[in-house]
């Protein structure tokens, strides 16, 4: 549990970080909150020669409204997300999900950017960002670009982020007023990753589902957007039979690995149970 030796860099600006990444190439790893990278280094599964700590870049922190979006700096901690009045009123599911990540000590240090950029399907924020249709801002040597969360995740630790790029901010469209939402997560204990989790954001109109987005955590090698399930639900009153069909459709896209949380079949079923419960709660919160 002793990491290998490494050089430590603490750039003051995004530009400096990008420059360091370009210079150090594959020998350089970005350090955000460190809750994934540092344990991996202690196990010597990761042995970066250079750590580039983004903690000294003031521009990467903060939460602000921008038109109909909210922009969150990549180095904003989960604790900051929970403490934000703006998020509490505009995107309450973000607060709810943050509160289910690990424990307070972790949330004081763990960041939204680190959580989404690492490409770990067990993290909670990637599925939520897909559910909310967020956009990630990345800076690289050739400038800045935007990547949709829904197209970002390619597989286990594989993302659309290119080497040399720093994920700088997350832009989240504010869901419609009166929307219902829920993040249901089954875990064995505080601090654990999800056995399965489901994020739901929906709007209702005349007692029927008007819009809906569903994403699933930790039931495949990447977070999943349950599009078929969404199609089934739109226009329905979330009656039991329709929900059951939608849940079956969501379960069908999962391919979890067996791990100490349970065999694959169980984790698939838990994705279904979490989705069922998330839909019920989202419906109860939705106005219209």
């Amino acid at each position: 549990m002793i990491p290998g030796s490494f050089n430590y860099h603490r750039p003051k600006s995004v530009q400096e970080a990008v420059g360091l990444l370009a210079k150090l190439g594959d020998d350089g790893r970005l350090l955000a909150g460190g809750h994934s990278l540092i344990p991996t280094m202690k196990l010597r599964l990761a042995t970066p020669a250079n750590l580039i700590d983004l903690g000294g870049i003031a521009d990467l922190k903060g939460i602000r409204a921008d038109g109909n979006d909210i922009v969150v700096g990549a180095m904003t901690t989960q604790h900051d997300l929970i403490a934000s009045d703006l998020l509490a009123s505009k995107i309450p599911i973000l607060r709810e999900t943050s509160a289910q990540i690990a424990d307070p000590q972790v949330r004081y240090v763990g960041t939204l950017g680190g959580n989404v950029a690492n490409g770990d399907p067990a993290n909670d924020m990637p599925a939520l960002m897909m559910c909310l249709n967020a956009t990630f801002h990345a800076s690289g040597k050739s400038g800045e670009r935007k990547i949709a969360a829904r197209g970002f995740y390619q597989g286990l630790y594989a993302t659309a982020l290119q080497s040399g790029e720093v994920l700088t901010a997350i832009r989240i469209p504010v869901p419609a007023a009166g929307h219902g939402y829920a993040y249901e997560k089954l875990k064995r204990k505080i601090g654990d990753f999800a056995t399965a989790a489901a994020a739901v954001v929906l709007t209702m109109k005349g007692g029927k589902v008007n819009s809906c987005a569903i994403a699933l955590t930790n039931v495949a090698d990447k977070p999943l957007l349950a599009e078929e399930a969404t199609k089934i639900l739109i226009g329905s009153a979330l009656d039991a039979a329709t929900v059951k069909r939608a849940v079956a459709a969501a379960e069908a896209i999962t391919s979890p690995a067996e791990d100490p949380r349970g065999p694959a079949q169980y984790r698939t079923k838990m994705a279904g149970v979490m989705l069922t419960r998330a839909l019920a709660r989202a419906k109860s919160l939705a106005k219209g």
Binding site: L186, R188, T195, R261, G262, Y266, K269, M270
Partner: peptide
Amino acid sequence: HDHWRVWTAAEKLGLH
């Protein structure tokens, strides 16, 4: 008696 084992016991009893 962790979650998946308890669930499996329920499954075997036909409770799902």
